[in-house]
Simulated scan of single mutants.
Amino acid sequence: MSFIHPLADVSSTHLGEGTKVWQFVVILKGAIIGRNCNICAHTFIEDDVIIGNNVTLKSGVYVWSGTRIEDDVFLGPNATLTNDMMPRSKQYPDRLFGITLKKGASIGANATLLPGVTIGEYAMVGELC
């Protein structure tokens, strides 16, 4: 059974078994989310998004239309995904360019991924200090 916090707004009916959705999360109707995921507070998931099994989205992650996230992926706090090559106010693109995160990839806190990028299996995106 999935857990949805009472302060979350989940319109999608495609939530896998064992997935946890915490407070102040918004998931739009067409999103598909796999089993045993952890969707932390203040996360937004748009409608044309597919998320695999065992995925963790930490707080402040926004997942825009066209994004595909495979199994076992980790997105750190405030990781930023984009899908518009030339964003402008009140000008809407003819095409959005989703991001693909392959199996086991880890995206560190505050990383920004540009439209159309594919991150390979078990890749690590972040900064070592």
Rank of each mutant, 00 (worst) to 15 (best):
S2I: 08
S2E: 01
S2Y: 03
F3L: 14
F3P: 07
H5A: 15
H5D: 14
H5P: 03
H5V: 06
H5K: 08
P6L: 01
P6D: 02
L7Y: 13
A8M: 03
D9S: 11
S11Y: 15
S12Y: 03
S12T: 15
S12F: 02
T13G: 10
T13M: 00
H14T: 11
G16W: 10
E17D: 13
E17C: 02
T19E: 07
K20A: 11
W22V: 08
F24N: 14
F24D: 09
V26S: 13
I27C: 02
K29S: 08
I32A: 12
I33Q: 06
G34D: 08
G34C: 10
R35Q: 13
C37Q: 05
N38M: 13
N38C: 14
I39V: 15
C40F: 14
A41Y: 12
H42A: 05
T43M: 00
I45G: 05
D47T: 15
V49W: 11
I50P: 01
G52M: 01
N53A: 11
N53E: 14
N54F: 12
V55K: 03
V55I: 11
V55S: 06
T56L: 13
K58C: 10
S59M: 12
G60W: 04
G60M: 08
V61K: 03
V61L: 08
Y62V: 01
V63R: 04
W64A: 06
S65I: 08
S65D: 15
G66N: 02
G66K: 08
T67V: 15
R68F: 13
R68K: 15
I69S: 01
E70Q: 13
D71P: 01
D72F: 15
D72A: 07
F74Y: 14
F74K: 04
L75K: 05
P77V: 14
P77K: 05
T80L: 04
T82S: 13
D84F: 11
M85L: 10
P87C: 04
R88S: 12
S89N: 13
S89P: 12
S89H: 15
Q91M: 14
Y92N: 02
P93A: 12
D94G: 09
D94E: 14
D94W: 00
R95T: 12
L96Q: 09
F97W: 10
F97E: 10
I99G: 01
T100W: 08
T100R: 15
T100E: 15
L101E: 02
K102N: 03
K103E: 11
G104T: 01
A105Q: 04
A105T: 06
G108V: 05
N110S: 12
A111E: 05
A111Q: 07
L114W: 11
P115F: 12
G116E: 13
V117H: 07
T118K: 10
G120V: 12
G120F: 04
G120T: 09
A123N: 06
A123G: 06
M124K: 10
M124R: 11
M124H: 08
V125S: 04
V125M: 10
G126S: 05
L128P: 00
L128I: 11
C129L: 10
